[in-house]
Design a binder for these strands. Structure first.
Lengths: 210, 210
DNA sequence: ATGATTTCTGCACGATCGGTCAACATTTTT
DNA sequence: AAAAATGTTGACCGATCGTGCAGAAATCAT
């Protein structure tokens, strides 16, 4: 009763390895280019075993996309009416950039899916993303109404934050190449955070309110 | 002597149709998911005819990527030391957003290629993109040295412009879904230009220099 | 008009794909 | 310990892929 037994412990470990491998392979080869056998090889198990746990490639893919979607959603918890706008948006940018570094594959899978017009997770967009976005826009517009930030387009501010933060995940390879071929150091990631917040938030805060 | 004959005229027309179809199919299905037969069907010709003009899928792909790269490069012609910074960067953003609207497929193909670590056009990144980027950074840093703009990171400013402008091409489907399922109108594209420039350029211009 | 050249197309090939299935191994339940 | 349930694996199938190739069709040069 205390434990669930060896089988279920293994089940969790194996499915976890598959999900992790799938996130990477889907990111690096796209949905069509990612074969089940390559995912299996990445996870170190036979192809049949992947099918056993996730039935089809599409179901496995949906699980991967759902994971990164949930993580991103949680990253915006700081965006509430009662928080300080600059602090809240700054935290959101910081968290999003941390995720760009720690979970770049998930971001790439999402980008690929949207680029291809969301053939598999369109329901996510219409149900959860739409209402979630409208809620954040309401918060930002409340800040504007209170005079806490400049009169900007809340929607385009969100898009700009998404675009810039995810750019550092999706375009990591381009950024690395332009960084003389070496990955960004801890210091350079800190500089990135500072630069992105400096650029975007100066367009948000009131001129006098420095 | 005046004309080149029917054959070469047709050659240009057919290769043009193939390139246009390929840009779209590569964007919507990724490199692996884009089959030659689907490109041929989109162009309205037999599969063998596509191979006749471009030999391999990879060579056709390189042509498609090279096209969008050249177009983007030309879009930054306004970024020179002697131009006014805010005007020049504003023009760049405008042009880049126009391209996001008129050539979204090219942008998506590029995004896909970078996400997958540039398996085919890495030479573009190391040769042309790298030197091109360094040149623009020199210009922006010259503006800073002259005191024409704030002391910002030229590199991250470029990345932010790329990220935001290309976001409106690569994530068109997400933006459309969040726009109640309908594509952006002319007016909304104008609002986008204004919002993006307002957000990014306020982080660039000197506080007093309004 | 005729031969050379270019353009176009259907067919065939080996490879790889997603997914099925039956046999086997292990763990859990009784 | 026997039965049931769960986990694991390799062999196999029909479909699609990129590409090579031979020959037909159209155009060009003479």
């Amino acid at each position: 009763m205390a434990t669930k037994g060896i089988q279920s412990r293994n089940r969790q470990e194996v499915t976890g390895r598959i999900l992790s491998a799938a996130e990477r392979v889907f990111a690096e080869f796209g949905y069509a280019g990612a074969s089940i056998s390559r995912i299996a090889a990445q996870a170190g198990i036979p192809k049949s075993n992947v099918v056993y746990y996730f039935e089809t490639k599409e179901l496995l893919y949906r699980r991967v996309v759902g994971e990164i979607f949930d993580i991103w959603r949680a990253a915006a918890d700081s965006i509430t009416v009662d928080n300080d706008p600059i602090q809240a948006l700054g935290d959101y940018i910081d968290t999003k950039l941390d995720l760009a570094r720690t979970r770049p594959y998930g971001s790439k899978v999402w980008a690929n899916e949207i680029i291809q017009r969301a053939p598999i997770v369109q329901d996510y967009l219409e149900d959860e993303l739409r209402s979630w976005t409208e809620d954040r826009i309401v918060v930002i517009e409340a800040w504007i109404a209170r005079g806490q930030i400049r009169q900007i387009s809340a929607r385009h501010l969100l898009y700009a934050i998404w675009a810039t933060t995810q750019h550092y995940a999706d375009f990591t390879h381009q950024i690395t190449t332009l960084n003389e071929g070496v990955e960004l150091t801890n210091r350079q990631w800190d500089e990135t955070k500072t630069a992105v917040k400096d650029l975007l938030l100066r367009g948000v805060e009131k001129p006098g309110g420095a």
